[in-house]
């Protein structure tokens, strides 16, 4: 058993499952948006689409999914390459910094997204 406090759910299975669930949500969302774009869209219809509550909730869900999905993915990347085994203590410092940066960016995106969705 290898524990880690920075992984998403602190369980391999939970992270694995979340990554797949969020991937499905993201796929569905981008298929919907792609389909709307292909069918032709202007400012008015786009605005109308996003005025509906279900679309705002769906967008928020997609945004949260993106955050979770990215966190799990990037967490795997930084724990692969930025490790104490490869770089000594520097690895730990770099990894923590990278994780903090990622967390701030994601948090910002989520807050910004909520502002956009409910701010107009």
């Amino acid at each position: 058993m290898v524990t880690s406090v920075t992984s998403m759910g602190r369980s391999g299975l939970y992270d694995w499952l979340m990554q797949r669930v969020t991937a499905v949500i993201l796929l569905a969302y981008f298929l919907l948006v792609g389909w709307v774009l292909i069918c032709g869209v202007d400012y008015a219809s786009w605005k109308a689409l996003y005025a509906q509550t279900w679309m705002r909730v769906f967008s928020l869900l997609a945004l949260l999914s993106l955050g979770i999905h990215a966190w799990i993915g990037l967490w795997a990347v930084v724990t692969d390459y930025l490790t104490e085994r490869l770089m000594g203590t520097t690895g730990n410092v770099l990894r923590l910094l990278a994780q903090i940066v990622c967390a701030i960016i994601m948090f910002t995106y989520v807050v910004w997204g909520i502002q956009i969705l409910w701010g107009f």
Partner: peptide, 12 residues
């Protein structure tokens, strides 16, 4: 199974 359920052992 309990010993394997962490982010590294299996899920890497």
């Amino acid at each position: 199974l309990s010993r394997l359920d962490d982010p590294f052992s299996v899920f890497r």
